[in-house]
Amino acid sequence: MNFFSAPALTRRASGLAWLGLAAALAAPALAQAQDKYPSRVIKVIVPFPAGTAPDVMARFWGERLSKALGQGVVVDNKPGASTIVGTQQFVAAPADGYTLLYTASGTVSINPFAYKKLPYQVADLVPVIQTLSIPLVVSVANASPYKTLSDLIKDAKDHPNKVSYASYGVATAPHVSMAYLANSANISLNHVPYKDGGLNDIVGGAVDTAFSPIADVLQFIKTGRVRALAVSSKTRLESLPQVPTVGEMFPGFEGDSWHGVFALKGTPQAAIDQIAAASQKIVASDEYKKYLSSMGLVPIGGTPEQFAAVVQADSKRWVGVIKNNNISLD
């Protein structure tokens, strides 16, 4: 039995055609909605223990990034082996913009030259934004006979390898920065590695000096337990305006560390651009500047290209220092 007349069949076919056309027109919009970044939680790997400066700063930035992007941002601490453990896990993740790395300068500008083998390639880490700079401070105990950097250098020249300095360990930023200063001044110093940076032993006089991160040492300076002799930055710091830069004695010297955000090679450029733009607004905010100023840290920001140039310049500087001082780790 013929249930449909010819006109009815024509109308039905016409309706189906319109449905097909509507579906075809809707498909790109649906795909675009599904592909909109970010559509789920972003994980940020921090290759440092909880409670350390990189962890604290990553969480501060991450909370504000979450608000800006309208998605959750979860910090995942993966400490170990001078950031190698966490970075290795990062490079094993999909390059989709949902796993980021928040780390310090040593990951990309020291480790590749100090370690004989690494489970990651710097080329696989795409710079997104430099969040901040960490000035280092040449500091001594308040009772130290060294009143100026010149005093320390003169004693080191008169007594090679006698003047001792603390650091967080071999191939850390305080270690290579002090080695850089020693090379610049043509002096020989005695390196004493500490797990905690050794500030308490500086105060107690067990070790002579250190090139300490400002966030560690600023309160020691303010309370009079430590005297600042010089800072590693290009210019004097707002937090320590009376303290000269090392560069005032040795032009061109710069030894700051930094924090930054990286994406994985192959991550869609649109995702990188979105994270960078949102992060730039965070770094430029008065809230961020005020938070950093309490620790002596310096907000930086800028474009991914500017951050890439910083990584390149740092790498060029530290590879020379590491080779000149035979700094090596397995």
Rank of each mutant, 00 (worst) to 15 (best):
G86I: 07
S294F: 15
Y194W: 05
F253C: 08
G255C: 01
E248Y: 07
Y115N: 07
F3N: 06
F90N: 06
G320W: 01
V163L: 06
P160L: 09
W18T: 00
Q89E: 15
K157S: 15
V170D: 13
H191R: 02
G72F: 06
V319N: 14
S177N: 13
A228W: 04
H191C: 03
G62E: 09
L132T: 12
K162S: 13
Q34H: 08
Y37D: 08
R317I: 12
K147E: 10
L16F: 02
Y288E: 09
L240G: 01
A27I: 05
A114E: 09
E63N: 12
A13D: 02
A166F: 07
I202F: 10
S167Y: 05
S279F: 00
D96T: 10
P160G: 04
Y98M: 08
I45D: 01
G301T: 08
I282H: 06
A270Y: 00
L149K: 07
L229M: 02
P241S: 04
K195Y: 01
L9C: 01
G62Y: 04
D35H: 07
P47S: 09
L292Q: 10
Q121E: 14
N190L: 12
A179R: 13
A17Q: 12
K222S: 11
A156D: 13
N326C: 05
A156N: 14
K289P: 03
L101V: 13
N77K: 11
A313S: 14
M1E: 08
N183E: 10
L9K: 03
A308R: 12
Q219S: 15
S279M: 03
F250G: 08
V128D: 00
H159R: 15
I42Q: 12
D286R: 14
A81I: 08
D55R: 04
V231R: 01
L292T: 14
P47I: 02
K78R: 12
L189Q: 13
A141N: 15
V74S: 09
L9E: 11
F4D: 03
F220S: 07
S232Y: 02
A270V: 13
S212V: 11
T107V: 10
D96I: 04
Q34P: 00
V137L: 03
M249H: 09
V231F: 00
N142P: 06
V203P: 07
R227G: 03
G72E: 15
I42M: 15
S328Y: 14
S139T: 15
